[in-house]
Design a protein around this nucleic acid. Structure first.
Lengths: 218, 218
DNA sequence: ATTACTAGTAGACGAGTAA
DNA sequence: TTTACTCGTCTACTAGTAA
């Protein structure tokens, strides 16, 4: 992403283009960006080309707004700033214990993964994951976590099946070491999966719906 | 502020240069920024020139960190993002009622100010201000408020004394219209001064130390 | 009034290289 | 190894102007 695109995008967002269409001439945008009308016109064409904004080119005044791709780019930058200004060395997210679909157990059981967990996380995982539905107000923190490096658990093949890369993030629940795991290319979700050496449900006497804090290292 | 400076600044901050010196070669910074070693070296010189970073040029590895001016620039951008992602149309800050130094009363009493308050804020101020010490966790919100336009109350001269410009921000305390006022060029403070048509201390039966929410319009 | 083309130019970039 | 100079290229800008 070119810097000058995010700069223009941010100004458009500040002028209200993140929620809805805003009527703005290329001259006005140019003034806001400190560039000429001609350059602003070109910038708009570039942003359209990159599918960062959409335009409704009326007879007299064009109206533009960010696309979801545009909003995503902005959020990425916002998260970088949050890491700079809000962070120490960990983030705490709160959520409720939830039933998983039992899939975790199958994956975690694969020797190709377990060996790496031991080497890279420092514990052999209990066979099964604890699923937590993150509270609405903390979901944005998951973005911040995903924007950090994480520990790559390499994928492998076994009996003709392909197991993809998994990213792990070290965490602690009530001072017990554990890790959040997620497929490398996972789409948005408010559910996180926890692996741990212990059976967390039993060790901490957790039931579905129980509130729990997860402290994630960065 | 040139965009490319804030971009470089942000990467340096993310690499830890906001808290302390970080050792980073021009090649490494170039890689982080997606530019050549030569350009990164030039960028560092430009940032030094703008006093956005300071450098400790060791024999083998240079060490750099942001200056307070550099951090301020970053925070300005951070606040723009917060306005985009966190805001609706107001911010609520919480604080404790505090004794002022009686200065507010003298200033607010000046006809040069009161006439403008009436015209620009829609009320004649009670002679005196309510001081609130903002809670530590809400102090950063004051930055966000300062980064918005505010209403300019023009300065004037009276009997040889110069009264400077004042910036007012419309606010509400328990649904009573009021405004935060601050000298145009005020330095950092966690105390805000409130003007109101009513004597807020009496009207709301406030004592020093009482917790109070101030809802500030943006 | 708009948007956006063409053309000319300033300046940002990286390659080569010195220290 | 470093940092950072010079210099040639090429991009990104603005002015002029068409539609």
């Amino acid at each position: 992403m070119d810097v000058k695109y995010t700069f223009a995008l941010r100004k458009i967002a500040l002028l209200g283009g993140i929620d809805d269409y805003i009527a703005i001439s290329s001259r006005e945008l140019g003034d806001a960006l400190g560039i000429s009308q001609q350059s602003a016109s070109k910038r708009i064409l570039e942003l359209l080309d990159e599918k960062l904004i959409v335009r409704d080119l009326g007879a007299r005044r064009q109206r533009i707004k960010l696309t979801s791709r545009g909003v995503d780019e902005m959020r990425k930058e916002y998260n970088e700033y949050r890491r700079v200004f809000e962070l120490t060395d960990h983030i705490t997210v709160r959520g409720k214990v939830t039933d998983g679909m039992g899939e975790g157990k199958y994956y975690i059981g694969q020797p190709g993964y377990t060996e790496q967990f031991e080497k890279k996380l420092g514990f052999t995982p209990f066979e099964g994951t604890l699923n937590i539905t993150v509270d609405k107000e903390d979901v944005s923190k998951l973005d911040m976590i995903k924007s950090t490096a994480g520990i790559v658990i390499d994928g492998f093949e076994n009996e003709g099946r392909t197991f993809g890369n998994v990213i792990a993030y070290k965490a602690r629940i009530k001072n017990i070491d554990c890790a959040i795991v997620a497929p490398e290319r996972s789409h948005y979700s408010d559910v996180i999966e926890i692996v741990c050496h212990y059976h967390l449900r039993r060790t901490l006497s957790l039931d579905n719906g129980d509130q729990i804090d997860v402290k994630i290292s960065l």
